[in-house]
Every structure is written in structure tokens, then in C-alpha cells.
Amino acid sequence: MASLLEIGSAIQAARKENGLTQDQLAALAGISERTLRSIEAGCGNPSFSAVLSTAEILGLKIAVER
């Protein structure tokens, strides 16, 4: 299972690949820039819906495996 830090790093890399600033991605995902910064840093306590909406904007999928 990926850690929050790994998910945040993947989101940050995809954001940069797509040429988006944190402010732009946060606006597209409907979250604050501060929340996006905490997601990318793998810290804080962002809501699961915030992480999912951000990943979805970037075309990333988060999978739960057993």
C-alpha cells in the first residue's frame, strides 16, 4: 500500500508534468492551495475526497488492494 508521502509525490510529479501550479490545480480540484501543499508534502490530515479529486484531475488512480 502506498503511503501518503508516496501519493503526494506522485500527485506533485503529475502536476508538474501537466504544467500546473499548485494554485491552478487546487482551483481545479476545488480545494485550498494549503490543502494541496499538505497533500503533496504527505503531511497534515487532508480529507480522502480532497486527495481523490486532486488525483482524478491529473488522471491518476488510487487503488486499494488486498
Results as ranks from 00 to 15, higher is better:
E17C: 06
E17S: 10
E17H: 06
E17Y: 12
E17K: 09
E17W: 10
G19C: 08
G19R: 12
G19E: 12
G19Y: 12
G19Q: 10
G19H: 14
G19A: 10
L20V: 08
L20Y: 10
L20C: 11
L20F: 10
L20E: 10
Q22W: 02
Q22V: 04
Q22R: 09
Q22M: 12
Q22D: 06
D23H: 13
Q24D: 12
Q24A: 15
Q24Y: 06
Q24W: 04
Q24R: 08
L25R: 00
L25T: 01
L25H: 02
L25K: 01
A26L: 00
A26C: 03
A27T: 05
L28A: 06
A29I: 03
A29C: 11
G30Y: 15
G30K: 11
G30W: 13
G30A: 10
G30M: 07
G30D: 14
G30H: 13
G30R: 14
I31W: 02
I31K: 02
S32F: 04
E33R: 14
E33S: 14
R34S: 15
R34I: 06
T35G: 08
L36W: 01
R37S: 00
R37V: 01
R37L: 01
R37N: 02
R37T: 01
R37W: 00
S38Q: 14
S38F: 06
S38N: 09
S38K: 04
S38H: 15
I39E: 02
I39K: 01
I39S: 02
E40W: 00
E40M: 00
E40A: 00
E40L: 00
E40D: 04
E40G: 00
E40K: 00
A41H: 13
A41R: 08
G42V: 00
G42D: 02
G42C: 02
C43Y: 11
C43D: 11
G44R: 07
G44H: 11
N45A: 09
N45Y: 04
N45R: 08
N45T: 09
N45L: 07
N45V: 08
N45F: 05
P46A: 05
P46E: 02
S47M: 10
S47Q: 07
S47A: 08
S47E: 10
S47G: 09
F48W: 14
F48E: 09
F48Y: 09
F48T: 09
S49F: 11
S49D: 13
S49H: 11
A50E: 05
A50D: 06
A50L: 11
V51P: 03
V51E: 05
V51H: 03
V51M: 06
V51Y: 02
L52V: 14
L52M: 08
S53F: 09
S53N: 15
S53R: 15
S53G: 15
T54P: 04
T54L: 03
T54V: 09
A55K: 03
A55H: 03
A55T: 05
A55C: 10
A55L: 06
E56P: 07
E56A: 08
E56C: 12
E56V: 14
E56F: 15
I57Q: 00
I57S: 01
I57D: 01
L58H: 03
L58I: 05
L58S: 04
G59K: 06
G59I: 07
G59Q: 14
L60M: 12
L60S: 04
L60R: 02
K61I: 05
K61C: 04
I62A: 13
I62Q: 11
I62W: 09
I62P: 13
A63H: 13
A63T: 06
A63E: 11
V64M: 12
V64L: 15
V64T: 13
V64W: 15
